[in-house]
């Protein structure tokens, strides 16, 4: 028992729990909510890019979910062939294949942190905390990879040189103005990240005295 408590931190004595229920409930609730938001985010687009050109008054939009692309993908691929860019669905195939299970694992780790009452909880919550940054960094990598590796025999290779599309914000490619922005899924992941951060603060405030008492 003592060994386990060493690993997952001290248990809250029943009388203490009755006296300060709120104190222990707050981090639990925040972690639960963060895990829930992460799970919901799987069903929403994480990122979208809209391309505007005079002949596309409504714009062309591609929406990136964690495991697939939606929107005007074939039309954008059709246009991209002029500059020699590979089809969008060839990007991040490995990431897409593990994304759903990966996010589920992140959420489970956050849930596990509810039961861990020492500083290891922070380690468990760390992947969820960093997930939005990891997502954007990976996406930026793929955008750079695609933008840099254009087919030199493509019809427009002389006028559109290899480039690095921005993962967020406004860019220009040939006659297209591109606007890349986070999707609702990413916003949820960011919210989950924030909740984890706040949760860790309350977690520390609740359990630190117990850990210190255990040491003492």
């Amino acid at each position: 028992m003592a060994n386990i408590e060493k690993l997952i931190g001290p248990r809250v004595p029943p009388e203490e729990l009755r006296a300060h229920r709120g104190r222990y409930l707050i981090p639990t609730a925040l972690f639960l909510l963060a895990a829930l938001l992460l799970l919901i985010s799987v069903f929403l687009p994480y990122w979208q890019m809209t391309l505007y050109a005079p002949q596309y008054p409504k714009g062309l939009t591609v929406q990136a979910y964690l495991n697939h692309l939606e929107g005007d993908v074939s039309e954008i691929d059709g246009l991209n062939h002029y500059i020699g860019m590979r089809p969008l669905n060839e990007a991040a195939t490995f990431e897409k294949s593990i994304s759903i299970i990966g996010v589920a694992v992140l959420a489970l780790l956050v849930l596990a942190a509810v039961f861990v009452h020492n500083r290891w909880a922070a380690l468990l919550a760390l992947p969820a905390l960093l997930f939005p940054v990891i997502f954007l960094a990976d996406l930026q990598y793929w955008l750079a990879n695609f933008g840099q590796n254009l087919d030199p025999t493509a019809p427009l290779s002389s006028s559109v040189k290899p480039f690095v599309p921005k993962v967020l914000g406004v860019g220009v490619v040939a006659q297209f103005k591109t606007i890349a922005r986070p999707g609702p899924g990413l916003w949820l992941a960011i919210a989950a990240s924030a909740l984890v951060l706040v949760g860790l603060y309350f977690h520390r405030r609740a359990y630190k005295p117990l850990v210190d008492a255990q040491k003492g």
């Binding site: 709120g22 707050i26 925040l30 916003w187 919210a191 924030a194 909740l195 706040v198 309350f202």
Partner: peptide
Amino acid sequence: MKRLILVSVVLLLLLSALAG
């Protein structure tokens, strides 16, 4: 508990402002 509510409200406002 009050602080939690405060944090949540700030977060929500931030999100809606960004969406707007």
